Simulated scan of single mutants.
Amino acid sequence: MFELVTILIDIILPIFMVMAIGFLMQKKFNMNLKTLAKLNIYFVVPGFIFVTLYESQFSGQLFVNILFFFVLFVVALYVLSTAFAKLLKLTKGKKTTFTNSAIFFNSGNYGVPVNDLVFKSDPYAMSIQVIVLTLQNIFLFSYGVFSLRSVDQGKLSAALGYFKMPVLYAMMTGVILNVYGISIPTFIWEPATYIADAMIAIALLTLGAQVAQIKFISGMFSVYFSLFIRLIVGPIIALGMIVSFGIEGVTAQALLIASAMPTSVNSAVIAQEYDNHPQFAAQIVLYSTFVSAITVTLVIYLARHLF
């Protein structure tokens, strides 16, 4: 019990403290959330990914292994959430939003700070989280957008949207320069590290501001099913895969903890953008973020004792 309380205080509470600042600032100053989102997507997240992947010591095999793990994990969540959506008899549009809430999790402005605190800024552990973050972003802004647009429009061209995302190019550049040992001039590297260092604070501030815009609504039965899949079943599936594949040590811990993150805020953002049950999506994000304080604490505890 003492260790659980320590995890809650030393790892989860600092994250919610910065989120609370963003929450209060949004309530007082009514900040422009679109500007904050663009600041994250086009500035700090690409910078952070580039610097982390360039500095990390990992093999191409690790990237392939995580990619394989990620694809299987998402497919399993998709099949399960689709089955639950049919059980709940959700409409086509609501079914899509429900499924997205399970397969898109907050690897960036929640997962990165958790990883940083759990592993005490270990570059190897962070490289695993960054790979998961990058894959999530590519997946979200390709399939995520496509799935919502296809509800009414059926436009396959939406799947090409991820080519506009700087995260993809930041990842590719960081990996290539790392693999070939290419040095980066100081006048480029220094500002890149400044941007990377700002990522966690700005990401959590943004998350708090986004949560401040969501209103509480009670009695949403399907929301609770979404939380169950994302926060409980998700880590169980990941644990089963980790044991089955014989993954051990820091890699196993990082992947298990990454799988436990709450629903991505961006899943609500794209639901709002394409007017596909935005309030339903927002409620899932809100509740999963708060409930995750308990579930993520438990998963961190299990990860430390199992691997």
Score class of each variant (00 low, 15 high):
156 L>A: 14
97 T>P: 11
99 T>Q: 12
120 K>V: 09
107 S>R: 00
188 I>Y: 10
150 S>N: 15
92 K>S: 05
153 Q>E: 15
144 G>A: 02
164 K>G: 14
103 I>P: 07
115 N>V: 01
86 K>T: 04
172 M>C: 04
190 E>W: 06
147 S>A: 15
129 Q>K: 06
126 M>D: 00
175 V>I: 15
135 L>F: 15
190 E>D: 15
137 N>H: 07
175 V>F: 14
191 P>E: 14
82 T>G: 11
186 T>K: 14
151 V>P: 02
136 Q>F: 12
191 P>K: 08
140 L>D: 06
111 G>T: 03
162 Y>T: 11
108 G>V: 00
86 K>G: 15
163 F>W: 01
125 A>L: 06
87 L>R: 08
90 L>Y: 03
128 I>K: 05
83 A>Y: 06
142 S>G: 07
192 A>R: 01
193 T>A: 00
153 Q>A: 14
184 I>K: 03
160 L>I: 03
101 S>C: 09
184 I>W: 09
193 T>D: 03
121 S>D: 09
167 V>K: 02
128 I>E: 11
152 D>L: 12
138 I>M: 15
95 K>A: 05
94 K>E: 02
181 G>N: 09
96 T>K: 02
132 V>P: 09
153 Q>N: 13
115 N>D: 02
114 V>D: 05
146 F>R: 06
186 T>H: 14
119 F>N: 04
95 K>E: 02
157 S>G: 12
172 M>T: 04
190 E>A: 11
113 P>T: 04
153 Q>G: 05
191 P>C: 09
143 Y>L: 13
111 G>C: 02
131 I>S: 00
